[in-house]
Write a protein that binds this DNA or RNA. Sequence first.
DNA 1: GAGCCGTGGAC
DNA 2: TGTCCAAGGCT
Length: 353
Amino acid sequence: MPLPPSSLSEEILAWYDRNARDMPWRLGPKARREGHRPDAYKIWLSEIMLQQTTVAAVKPFFARFVNRWPTVGDLANAEASEIMAEWAGLGYYSRARNLHVCAKEVVENHGGAFPRTAAALKALPGIGDYTSAAIASIAFDEAAPVVDGNIERVITRLYRISAPLPGAKPHVKEKVTGLTPKDRPGDFAQAMMDLGATICVPRSPSCLLCPAAEQCEARSHGDQTAYPVKAAKRPVPQRTGAAFVATRSSDGAVWLRRRPASGMLGGMAEAPSTAWSARKDGETGADVAPFKADWMHVGAIAHGFTHFKLTLEVYRAEIDAEPSNEGWWAARHEIADQGLPTLMRKVVDKALG
DNA sequence: GAGCCGTGGAC
DNA sequence: TGTCCAAGGCT
């Protein structure tokens, strides 16, 4: 006999009170019950960074951002290039561009304070369904239904929802709405995410430790790992291109330029490379270099993206003068500070040995 | 709705 | 090595 939803929510909250993960941006359940509120700026910043990104990867980036820009006003006043460089390595760079735009909108249109409802938050750039509900519930106690990948997994198992995602998302959201308690919506959202991240994991869920095990329909059928059902994905194509690392003969400085604001690695620094994003094969020789030089082939690097795999042939040359007016010299000891995305860090490492 | 958009870790 | 995937949003 399944218990009513409120009881299930209480079981999960009680589990959270005992097992909440400690995060730099999080206020624990004890402090929340004592009436304290987390800093909305830190909740927002962490939620943006956590989009499709692991907690472990986010932690050092979050610490650097908060240290350098302690408030949303500080972030709004920063240069876009500084933010992009600080974000380098975290991926999905449109998040960094939207981060800056959002901070400026909060300052200019909301008096420097984040709006307190999910609906108003969702109007800001980079904040969608999930993030608006997460911020509203965690920072402002609005009972907005929070649905992320963890919660999709927990819910589809609990109710043995066999329709494939993302089509089944409205059904999942409906279930979450029914479960979310009015008095502790933020803690409940974080409890469900912690449950999905530590107990109800994709491959080998620890059902013996799960506070919802007795009410889990998938577990009663013994097919927990069959959920969530997801639509089949397409195979990822292979693409190739070439990258060109020019060093200045006088001091070894490296010639870099900035990629266009939109598209792959938009707005990030790079060593000049061919238009690999639009190319399937061919044109990987030194003859497609962006400028004339005595190019030497030094090898190739491979890099996997979400929707294609890339192999870049890497060339190096020493030159004397600036090859164009669109770029800059980066001193060898400053390359780590240039904000190179990981792909380009691999290219430069390959070229310079 | 489906494609675009990074990266690093687990298995 | 390959595959999956991790607190998604935008177009």
